[in-house]
């Protein structure tokens, strides 16, 4: 069993390494003549999409005390999400 797990682990490592080599092969080496176009295109492609930013469509207020103030003022219940990391930047 241990040997099988080791083999699976080894295959995963090889897979990642091969994947990395393929990725590098696809990306370059990027020549001086192509680098500006490649970087601009790649950076643009990696920006967050509209789907990634649906979270921004929610009307978030700044903090809990502000939420309670508005809750009283508008007689609305309060939705509070508390979590690890920063949900607004995806670092969570």
């Amino acid at each position: 069993m241990f040997e099988m797990i080791n083999n699976v682990h080894a295959l995963r490592v090889i897979g990642v390494l091969v994947g990395g080599m393929v990725a590098t092969a696809c990306a370059g080496p990027i020549s001086d003549g192509n680098v500006v176009r490649w970087v601009e295109k790649t950076v643009a492609e990696r920006q967050p999409t509209a789907q990634d930013k649906l979270f921004d469509q929610i009307a978030w207020v700044a903090d809990i005390r502000t939420a309670i103030q508005f809750g009283k003022e508008y007689n609305r219940p309060i939705f509070l999400y508390s979590g690890m990391g920063r949900i607004n930047t995806g670092r969570c």
Partner: peptide, 14 residues
Amino acid sequence: ILNRNFVCVYAANE
């Protein structure tokens, strides 16, 4: 439903 009925807030524990 959140925007129409609730006040929404999030908190980062750290």
